[in-house]
Design a protein around this nucleic acid. Structure first.
Lengths: 154, 154
DNA sequence: GACAAATCCTACTCTTTTGGTAGGAATATG
DNA sequence: CATATTCCTACCAAAAGAGTAGGATTTGTC
């Protein structure tokens, strides 16, 4: 599994906030209840998002969190990168440019590099807005069977 | 990390066999030495490949393994799928069609499904032959900076 | 000023996965 | 029959994953 619950729940939280933006600050307990997830666990996850500048927070009564930008201005790659640390499919792809000592002669490395790029490419093209709007064409691309002209709306 | 050493080493073994095909059976100790990997560990990995019908094997002296098909007839997706069990980026994407009970209303599921497809799509299009030939255009696609006309050969 | 509701922070823990190792049985060749 | 090989089962230590626990701090309201 490339993405753990940490990244998955982080995205869930971001989507939840995107849906409820404009209503001031949203408390974590509300999110946890709506999404049916452990509030204590979400706490540690939302803290990463907050420190990473994805959110604004307010302590105390009526406090909570809200998105720092518009939903369309977040791409999924940055959200997952922040929470997961890396999305590299194998650990011989380093995010900071450091390389395995066999890299120069490794014949499988280009495959992993290509896979890494394919993943990044996909995730970078999707925004939070695409998700809340259920933009199936963009999310599922050519693979989406129900994206034809007969489909309703999106 | 989506792909563990198991899948990575499996691919390394397959590439090694592809490079040395035609020379009869190749012993595991030869592969382990060439690739500088633990023979004992490779044993457990090559056993998966063998049982999955990817290889032919011969016991006893002068025995070993060889590819069951031509390098061009293996795609990377099937090799990794066999050794890793699944390549799904999150565990809410089930390979056997079983779904999470929230699937119908989950707004993030299409993203994970799309990512899963993007990965499968990439890996299915690459063959063992592409790797041994170092087909950078196919492996790295549009992201390959050295694939331009100025590049040598491929 | 007390209280309640919220974020913030540190530490702990249980389970599963990963990445192997060890030892020997079965089999084919010379 | 000796040797080189695959095959098979079991074991193990370290790391990662998935949370829990408990409390300190801050802020709005009565």
């Amino acid at each position: 599994m490339m993405v753990s619950t940490k990244g998955r729940y982080a995205l869930t939280v971001m989507v939840d906030l995107a849906r409820n933006c404009g209503d001031g600050y949203v408390s974590l307990s509300d999110i946890a209840e709506r999404e049916n997830l452990s509030m204590k666990y979400l706490e540690s996850i939302i803290s990463i998002l907050n420190k990473g500048g994805m959110l604004n927070s307010l302590r105390g009564k009526n406090g909570g969190y809200r998105l720092a930008r518009e939903p369309r201005d977040y791409n999924i790659n940055e959200i997952l990168l922040l929470t997961e640390g890396t999305l590299a499919p194998v650990n011989c792809i380093m995010q900071d440019g450091v390389q395995c000592d066999k890299a120069a002669t490794c014949s499988t490395l280009p495959l992993w590099a290509g896979l890494d790029k394919a993943i990044e490419n996909y995730l970078s093209a999707i925004t939070l807005e695409d998700i809340i709007e259920g933009n199936r064409k963009k999310l599922l691309g050519d693979y989406c069977e129900s994206c034809g002209p007969a489909d309703s709306g999106n």
